[in-house]
């Protein structure tokens, strides 16, 4: 793990998401509750809809293009749809959001 500080928790609206550009592509950081964040691939496996623009509900997000729903814990598509989005380790340190740099393809700074 190499935790990278990517911003303040309040930079993401509650039940919303923001994008982080990474070497593995765009990663969406979801804020599902006051102090609960998830990180996952921004692209829906169906038609590449931007998941960071979806409606966030519970610990799930709905793709804005065709309403595929993904569980942010597992990345699995819900209901009858089949597919999975990559998820990445992310955590909160106080108000700061830390994303695992290794997981998103960044070489260690050391």
């Amino acid at each position: 793990m190499s935790w990278i500080d990517i911003g303040h928790i309040d930079d993401i609206p509650l039940r919303g998401a923001r994008l982080v550009k990474t070497p593995v592509g765009c990663v969406a950081i979801f804020r599902t509750a006051e102090a609960e964040v998830f990180a996952a691939s921004n692209a829906c496996p169906h038609k590449a809809g931007p998941l960071s623009e979806g409606i966030v509900h519970g610990q799930k997000v709905t793709c804005p293009l065709h309403n595929w729903v993904f569980d942010l814990n597992t990345g699995e598509a819900q209901g009858a749809d089949e597919g999975r989005i990559a998820t990445y380790p992310v955590r909160l340190d106080g108000d700061r959001i830390l994303l695992d740099g290794h997981a998103v393809g960044k070489r260690s700074a050391a």
């Binding site: 990517i6 911003g7 993401i12 923001r18 982080v20 550009k21 070497p23």
Partner: peptide, 12 residues
């Protein structure tokens, strides 16, 4: 808010 929160590709 319409921009990415962070850009980790630049450093890379």
């Amino acid at each position: 808010r319409f921009h990415p929160l962070a850009d980790l590709t630049l450093e890379a």
